[in-house]
Design a protein around this nucleic acid. Structure first.
Length: 550
RNA sequence: UGGGAGGUCGUUCAACGGUAGGACAGCGGGCUCUGGACCCGCGAAUCGGGGUUCGAAUCCCUGCCUCCCAGCCA
């Protein structure tokens, strides 16, 4: 059953026998990293191909040598693969078709449907007219076929400098659709292309290369975003006027927008180049690489893409939905572990000095097959500073003087005293434990109101934890002219000495954990065997935090 | 003011002439050795005005609002 209007079209086409198999394509330009918006398109294109038994091509739209680099192409392949999709044998490049595209351009010239124009870029703009006024025809519009052919061949041969000539389609300078006012098909660029090297001095425009590349690859459904809707008449014109082997159709859907986020390539590039983030894969970036490093799972991104749906209406998705999607997945698969981010020492005064007990605790209560592990308990522990209040307000159920709480999987403890430094800051808590509650349950059935996570001081390993918050302060950072002014100064907070239970020692890069009661964390690739570094993927919902805020 | 597209809970997707539904967010409750998760519940929408029809979010007319287009970018 179709779940969106594009799948409805695909089903109808298949049902009507217009195509025997569905072929889609994901056509990134290798001039930047893929972001969450691309993920939507990837999931759509590869998803449809998978669902209807067709295939999806990965095609690099590398028609502009001035902006494109092989490094980006590699990153794109890595990201698509990581998301869980495969193009199989179908890896293509628009640049693979340059020769065919060139021959078709000559065909167009011979059919008097294209001409070489010598107007300057400024003149072409001036001749194009405006949104409300028709354009004027170029004085070169009616060159002879022979002259056009000669000029076009010499353009290819590199005889002319950049900008002197372009090849234009001869359509209609009075069209209300500006894209049909003799659009430029080829321009001269004396530039080295990352794949074709110096073989070409002319390069096709997107509007020319895209539909014809689709046709060459027998694409059935060419899916793109709304801003190309106006280009569809040109797409169709080319398919009709060039002897292509197939007749693909273009369909448009609304791009993904996320609040508190920018996803324009240009702006992401500036964030990287101006050093506002540490790179394309900075965990605060909405790039696939950034989300990966942040600890997002491929499944969570795919689920997110399914949830946001596909339609033509402009939309701004709440980042909370993205966060929900990771939590949902990580809750099922992430191993639980205890870590204390802001340590507060607790001395259990009636616990024997030098003794250690090991307690069994589940690795994932949501998944019994994940098994369990042992955590060491001793006389001196760390608990979270937030988990203690000397004068607890009404709904604060955690530790306070005289109050008993459970330490997860070990014992009930009661706070018996508070030590402060000269400045009045709490430096240590004193407590007693109840030996009868060994393992975490009281024989008399009493239930503490809170269960805290903890780490044995003697056994704890130190680690670095990077806490991320949204990169921008306002919902729509694009709205204000200077989006840099909207950067959140607290988007990264580094905790240099968090305390971790010893079972995590040696965790490999990219391993994901839930720090119980704190959030989901992922081992950063910068981690070493001596020093673990974690990125916070997402917080756990903390009801108390919400109460405290109000 | 030319052309193209779009207006449904706060957000998003659905309902394809027959009870406007789901998800996220919010609020309330239950349960819990994570104040997590989970479970239950609540509030919440068809852009306006006409018309067709037994019946309209859906069809027609009209008005309004929003987005996109004047790169030799994609």
């Amino acid at each position: 059953m179709a779940t969106d209007f594009i799948r409805e079209i695909v089903e109808e086409d298949l049902h009507a026998g217009r195509y025997s198999t569905v072929v889609t394509r994901f056509p990134p330009e290798p001039n930047g990293y893929l972001h969450i918006g691309h993920a939507k398109s990837i999931c759509l294109n590869f998803g449809i191909a998978n669902e209807y038994g067709g295939h999806c091509n990965l095609r690099f739209d590398d028609t502009n040598p001035t902006k494109e680099e092989a490094e980006y192409a590699e990153a794109i392949k890595r990201d698509v693969t990581w998301l869980g999709f495969s193009w199989g044998e179908h890896l293509y490049h628009a640049s693979d078709y340059f020769e065919q595209l060139y021959r078709w351009a000559e065909d167009l010239i011979r059919a008097e449907k294209a001409y070489v124009d010598g107007l300057t870029a400024d003149e072409i703009r001036a001749f194009r007219g405006t949104l409300t006024e028709a354009g004027k025809e170029s004085p070169h519009r009616n060159r002879s076929v022979d002259e056009n052919l000669d000029l076009f061949r010499r353009m290819r041969a590199g005889e002319f400098p950049d900008g002197t000539y372009v090849l234009r389609a001869k359509i209609d300078m009075a069209s209300p659709n500006i894209n049909m006012r003799d659009p430029v098909l080829y321009r001269i660029r004396h530039e080295t292309h990352h794949r074709t090297g110096d073989a070409w001095d002319i390069y096709p425009m997107y509007d020319y290369a895209h539909p014809l590349s689709d046709a060459i690859e027998s694409i059935t459904h060419s899916l793109c975003t709304l801003e190309f809707e106006d280009h569809r008449p040109l797409y169709d014109w080319l398919i009709e006027n060039v002897p292509v082997p197939a007749h693909p159709h273009q369909y448009e859907f609304a791009r993904l927008n996320l609040n508190y986020t920018v996803v324009s390539k240009r702006k992401l590039l500036r964030l990287v180049e101006d050093g506002h983030v540490r790179g394309w894969d900075d965990p605060r970036m909405p790039t696939i690489a950034g989300l990966r490093r942040r600890g997002y799972t491929p499944a969570s991104i795919r689920n997110f893409a399914d949830r946001v749906g596909v339609a033509k209406r402009e939309n701004v998705i709440d980042v909370a939905l993205l966060e929900f999607s990771v939590r949902e997945d990580l809750n099922q698969i992430a191993r639980r572990v205890m870590a204390v981010l802001e340590p507060l020492r607790v001395v259990i005064e009636n616990y024997p000095e030098g003794e250690t007990e090991w307690f069994d605790t589940p690795n994932n209560p949501e998944d019994p097959s994940a098994g369990s592990r042992s955590v060491p308990f001793s006389r001196v522990l760390y608990i979270e500073r937030d988990d203690f209040m000397e004068e607890p307000p009404k709904k604060f159920f955690r530790l306070a003087p005289g109050r008993e709480v459970r330490l997860r999987s070990s014992y009930f403890i009661t706070c018996t005293g508070v030590s402060k430094d000269a400045g009045g800051n709490i430096v240590e808590l004193r407590a007693t434990y109840d030996p009868a509650t060994r393992g975490g349950d009281a024989p008399d059935g009493r239930k503490p109101k809170a269960t805290l996570h903890w780490v044995s001081a003697e056994h704890a390993i130190d680690c670095e934890v990077r806490l991320y918050d949204r990169l921008f302060r306002s919902e729509n950072p694009e709205e204000s002219g200077d989006f840099f002014a909207d950067l959140n100064p607290d988007s990264l907070k580094i905790i240099a000495d968090a305390k971790l239970e010893p079972s995590v020692r040696g965790a490999a890069a990219m391993m994901r954990f839930q720090f119980e009661r704190v959030g989901y964390f992922c081992v950063d690739p910068e981690s070493t065997s001596e020093r673990l570094v974690f990125n916070r993927t997402a917080t756990l919902k903390d009801t108390w935090a919400k109460i405290a805020k109000n």
